[in-house]
Design a protein around this nucleic acid. Structure first.
Lengths: 89, 89
DNA sequence: TCTATACATTTAAAAGTTTGGATGCATTGG
DNA sequence: CCAATGCATCCAAACTTTTAAATGTATAGA
């Protein structure tokens, strides 16, 4: 397991909005940036930033469709992080 | 599961030195601040700060013995975080 | 008691993060 | 083609984190 991934992924989770996004993706399966903007009340550039952080972390996948960016959980990434933490115990 | 705990705990992991400390605790069981200072090469106040962050996060336990602070993993905390991430998938 | 050791706290500087306004670009619908 | 929509980028302000030097407090040993 690459420590750089662990750092990035855990850092991505360590924010209330990004955590909210992850939980919403877990429940709903997919969201686009507008959904997130509505859900969080954040500005569009701010949502764009948080979404980028999540994608860069490897915890979220992006599927572009026309002008929409559909997001979904990267379950592999989440499992890798979860498994890493579990192995520490 | 309390989101505040998830945010704090993941934030605590999202740093190379704190991650290194967690991994060392996992391998060795216990460490004190001097061990960590030697291991990381950080200054004593800086180690003190990172250790405080880890303790505050609920991922590390502190057992004071005289002038030594012995640290160990809080396995419950790690399992809680790991379980939370797993449930997202 | 005096000294050394272990850790905490205060302070301050540098670096990074979060946020929104303004703007730009691409796609879609009329 | 034009207007509207969805997202990215640039910029700047506010805030937080990281780090170490200086200093303080407590315990342990000579």
């Amino acid at each position: 397991m690459d420590n750089k991934f662990i750092e990035k992924a855990s850092g991505a989770i360590a924010d209330k909005y990004r955590l909210q996004i992850l939980q919403a993706l877990s429940e709903k399966g997919t969201l686009n940036n507008s959904d997130i903007q509505e859900m969080t009340g954040l500005s569009q550039p701010c949502v764009s930033h948080h979404v980028k952080t999540l994608i860069d972390s490897g915890l979220v996948n992006s599927h572009k469709e026309g002008r929409n960016q559909n997001l979904s959980l990267n379950k592999e990434g989440l499992k890798d992080l979860s498994g890493f933490l579990n192995k520490l115990t």
